[in-house]
């Protein structure tokens, strides 16, 4: 921490990175967001496991008695539900740290465009959600019959960007209400529906080691990319109206 230049000497990107770094330093010292997120995700996984039939039986691996869903379809859904829950629990805290001792006022005094503040918070949230996924995906691969291929990484990256773009923006909105932790999922889940569907559809094939149809896969990737781009821009533009 010794060679940090004065904030005024930095450009937009430098200040943004510095703010993200500030949040990460707070987390490293306080550890009050990521460890609960990780344990929470494991707790959700545990509960979801009780809803599955015995996967050791060969018949159960093919078809579940819920319509036409295979175990892999359901597991992909479980995995992403867990990621969304853990993510939103964590994102809801991203503006909590600014509430103490008027930190938000100091933050707003930083000579930086509001889009930089948004990006800094989004980068911190991205770091949290990636950490959760690095923990959760192997846990799922160990506990459930799924395979993790390289293709999963591409899906995860695209999903995370859209998730964080929405999650960070709506966390700032929800922070202005009396019921912050509840309002964030209420606001974010409906908007995240397309991301969630795309994530489940793309990963359920990958988990089974089944090739995704080129057309279908391209369609879902297209939806994800468009969603990410539009909501990253919306978030960056909208942030100046949210934070005042």
């Amino acid at each position: 921490m010794s060679a940090v230049p004065a904030p005024g000497a930095r450009g937009w990107a430098g200040k943004t990175l510095l703010l993200a770094r500030k949040d990460l330093v707070i987390e490293v010292r306080g550890r009050d967001t990521l460890p609960p997120m990780l344990v929470f995700s494991l707790a959700v996984t545990l509960l979801l496991a009780f809803t599955l039939p015995d996967t050791s039986r060969p018949s159960a691996r093919v078809v579940l008695p819920v319509g036409t869903a295979s175990v892999a379809d359901v597991l992909a859904g479980f995995l992403w539900v867990t990621v969304l829950f853990a993510g939103l629990v964590g994102f809801a805290r991203s503006f909590e740290v600014e509430r103490h001792e008027g930190a938000i006022d100091a933050l707003l005094l930083v000579p930086l465009d509001r889009s930089g503040l948004y990006l800094a918070k989004a980068m911190t949230n991205l770091a949290f959600i990636v950490a959760v996924e690095l923990f959760l995906f192997p846990v799922f691969a160990v506990l459930f019959p799924i395979g993790l291929g390289a293709g999963v990484v591409a899906v995860v990256v695209l999903v995370d960007v859209g998730f964080v773009a929405i999650g960070t923006l709506f966390a700032a909105l929800a922070a202005q209400t009396r019921s912050r932790e509840l309002m964030l999922p209420v606001l974010a889940f409906p908007v995240l529906v397309p991301v969630f569907i795309a994530a489940v559809e793309l990963t359920s094939d990958l988990f089974l080691g089944r090739p995704t149809g080129v057309v279908v896969g391209a369609g879902w990737f297209g939806i994800l990319v468009a969603f990410d781009l539009i909501y990253a821009v919306v978030g960056a533009l909208a942030f100046e109206y949210v934070i005042e």
């Binding site: 923006l169 606001l187 908007v191 919306v234 909208a238 109206y241 949210v242």
Partner: peptide, 16 residues
Amino acid sequence: QIARSAAIVGIAGFIN
């Protein structure tokens, strides 16, 4: 500034 925040939700929700 809930009016502004609500406007953001109104915009983001419709784009969706």
